[in-house]
Design a protein around this nucleic acid. Structure first.
Lengths: 224, 224
DNA sequence: TCGGGTATTTTTGAATGCAAAATGATCGCC
DNA sequence: GGCGATCATTTTGCATTCAAAAATACCCGA
């Protein structure tokens, strides 16, 4: 058996995996409207792959909930059902709560540094695109601080399911400012390792974000 | 556009989906030991399908966490890491808690009937196989009573990840009896729609089950 | 006999090909 | 002119095929 093995990167990413990521990005960017047929042949052209890896990617994304597979009738972009969005936020609330409880106890100094850093960057990037991305990273960093990879992955999957909607909300300066205030409160609890408070503030922040998203979906004004 | 469409079943299950389910069953039954290579050709023979649908199934099961895909080096059965199992139960605890909070409020009379029924059946089927299955169904029914399909699906995915281990624990009569007692306590809270109590008892039951599973994994005796 | 390197076999990843189903268009009928 | 049925086209699902990579076997030299 060979010896030098651990350092060689397993980065020989297969074509199907690249396709999964590319297609997911396309879907997250909302390039294909909800419920529309997925143009298999067209995407093959676009990504420069044959149908086999593309179809494998479709299966995976269907398992992730981005796509609906209708046997013999093609795949469609999973429509965003406001009811479903509410359900995602409801579940996410339970996980945010758990994140608060665990992160307060388990966060390493490195975790603290990272989170503080992202938090600072958020303050200086109020434009919607950067804000959405950094906000995502902020919450992801907190999730990571639980040191529970299963939780992180599940949390990530849920986030992805509502990510397409986020940029809409984050275009509203009022909500962005409010959101940042909530982040400040979260940071206070996090720095103090106040687990119950951190849990509550994360859950509350999630609830308010969910409500803002749903209001936008319903076409209501965002001002609360 | 045609009119009679809603009643025709979408049950024309595609070959790849059947394969996903069959292969998942094989994995859940522990027929392939952890870390072992997945004999692609052999499984094609067994399921009577070609490599295309089988490989699609592998991708899906990899996304579900049952399988590890190593580019150009074949797929292996995802090894059960005790640390990971602990993480699954930790996250599941948060969700069980949420299930308790929501199910107590939202369960319909039908939900109550169903859950009572499964609970009764559990009492009369102490053999490991039935018990594992009914136990699964009991918790699934409670999850369903939240009427949050996103939660149900996420919960299901987590359950699947530890399901292979369950039958081991459920072969221990002591733990089975204890588990049933916990179910009784859960039912008392559920019937009374005592949401905080139901949440706590579900979370506690989850914690105890997790500990029993981990003890078994470590080869310790099950008696607490 | 052992080690290293090369050749062979096996296995994997992806493209192509083919049959069946669905979609859409044309035509006939009322 | 509107409606339905039949036929052509497109799209989908799966099998097969081909090339490349890995695993294995083999050979040769020390």
């Amino acid at each position: 058996m060979s010896l030098a093995r651990q350092d060689e990167e397993p980065e020989a990413v297969s074509l199907h995996e690249q396709t999964v990521n590319k297609l997911r990005t396309v879907l997250l960017n909302g390039e294909l409207s909800d419920g529309s047929r997925i143009p298999e042949a067209q995407l093959c052209l676009r990504f420069g792959v044959s149908r086999t890896p593309l179809r494998e990617a479709l299966k995976v994304l269907a398992a992730e909930g981005f796509i609906e597979l209708r046997p013999n009738r093609g795949s469609i972009v999973a429509p965003i059902d406001p009811v479903d969005v509410a359900h995602v936020f409801e579940l996410k609330g339970a996980i945010e709560n758990q994140i608060g409880l665990l992160a307060a106890l388990r966060a390493t100094p490195q975790d603290h540094d990272r989170i503080e850093q992202v938090h600072r960057e958020l303050a200086t990037h109020p434009d919607p695109t950067s804000y959405t991305e950094l906000n995502q990273e902020f919450h992801r960093a907190l999730a990571t601080a639980t040191h529970n990879p299963v939780l992180v992955q599940t949390y990530d999957n849920l986030q992805k399911r509502v990510l397409r909607l986020r940029f809409v909300v984050n275009e509203n300066p009022v909500r962005v400012a409010q959101s940042f205030d909530e982040h400040e409160a979260i940071m206070v609890a996090f720095r103090a390792r106040a687990r119950l408070d951190l849990a509550e503030r994360l859950a509350e922040h999630n609830r308010l974000t969910g409500e803002a998203v749903l209001r936008t979906l319903r076409g209501e004004d965002l001002a609360p």
